[in-house]
């Protein structure tokens, strides 16, 4: 027993902490340094703002996805649900006849509620009938896409209130306003996950659901709540999308779910649940955004960019597994 209590080398503790938690951050800094050296215009403030704007939507989706993945679920429907949220909220703004000052908050409410409701359906079906969320949300992917197309008759909605689109290009303290929204969301999520009882139960449930249930907690409720949070984030992302692009189209968002999952996984989360952090997710989204932007500025062709992105995802996850083993050995 003294073996366990024996003091460890201080260097080992420090090294294991850096390796265990900041590995992805180190990779990101390295990538930024690389592009600063080789990609023209990469370091201009204009481009930094571009990157921030460009990662906003994926960051918001990935924050929601983090909650779902932490409880061992997955949400494949976000790309379709964002389209559904956008077209319904977009129509709410253009057709409701409300003045902009009322129409926009109303649309935000509509969008978040639709997102939350689809999330609830995903979570409820998953829990009530004990089926894999992979399958349920795959189904929702089709349902929401079809619903979005049905709702608009496949038309694109574009005459959105100028107030909203102005917000999409506005800056706040030098930062894109939409990015500020994403960062606020990240901060709130971080607080919830690390400082609240609910956050604690999310990690615990993802790690060992039965143990949490037998400790007197309703794990089903916790899991459904995570799906609802994930859905609500999609609703927020839909508003940001409309603010940024000025349109709501039923075909928008294809493949977004995979980008969001990639960000979460690069950020060090385990798809089995119980491990991950919203800060890691933010860094994962940054990594993907910086990579895409930097390669584009370097004039790398789109096909090669796609290949490099895929390779980086694989390398990131392999490195993550490797450093995790290393940090376990050091601890």
């Amino acid at each position: 027993m003294t073996a366990v209590t024996a003091p460890r080398a201080v260097g080992g503790r420090w090294a294991s902490q850096v390796l265990g938690e900041a590995g992805i951050g180190v990779a990101l800094v390295a990538l930024v340094a690389f592009f600063l050296a080789f990609a023209p215009y990469f370091g201009t403030s204009q481009n930094v703002r571009d990157i921030m704007t460009q990662i906003t939507i994926n960051t918001i989706l990935a924050v929601g996805m983090t909650f779902v993945i932490l409880v061992g679920g997955i949400d494949l429907s976000v790309g379709s649900v964002i389209a559904l949220c956008a077209v319904v909220a977009g129509t709410a703004m253009t057709d409701s006849g409300l003045p902009t000052a009322l129409a926009v908050p109303f649309a935000i409410l509509v969008s978040v509620v639709i997102g939350a409701v689809t999330g609830f359906v995903n979570g409820f079906v998953t829990e009530r009938w004990v089926v894999p969320s992979f399958i349920v949300t795959l189904g929702m992917l089709y349902v929401a896409r079809g619903a979005a197309q049905q709702y608009t008759g496949a038309a694109t909605i574009y005459d959105l209130p100028p107030g909203l689109t102005r917000f999409g290009t506005a800056t706040f303290a030098g930062l894109p306003a939409v990015f500020v929204v994403a960062m606020l969301l990240v901060a709130v999520a971080w607080f919830v996950l690390s400082r609240t009882v609910f956050g604690r139960l999310i990690y615990a449930t993802g790690n060992n659901e039965e143990a949490v249930r037998l400790s007197g907690h309703r794990t089903s409720l916790i899991k459904v709540a995570c799906f609802v949070i994930g859905g609500a984030c999609v609703g927020v992302a839909a508003i940001i999308y409309m603010a940024r692009l000025g349109v709501a189209s039923p075909i928008l968002g294809q493949g977004y779910e995979l980008n969001a999952i990639a960000a979460v996984v690069i950020g060090g989360a385990s798809l089995a649940g119980g491990r991950g952090s919203v800060v890691g997710t933010l860094l994962g989204a940054c990594l993907l955004g910086v990579l895409s932007n930097g390669l584009n500025l370097m004039g790398v062709s789109d096909f090669q960019r796609t290949m490099v992105t895929g390779a980086v995802i694989i390398v990131a996850v392999v490195l993550d597994a490797y450093r995790r083993r290393l940090s376990v050995r050091l601890s």
């Binding site: 902490q17 850096v18 938690e21 900041a22 992805i24 951050g25 180190v26 990101l28 800094v29 930024v32 370091g43 930094v48 990157i51 971080w190 690390s194 952090s277 800060v279 890691g280 933010l282 860094l283 940054c286």
Partner: peptide, 15 residues
Amino acid sequence: RRTALTAVVTVTTAL
């Protein structure tokens, strides 16, 4: 978490 947070701040500042 603080370590990771430091990393974010560093990156943002660097950018």
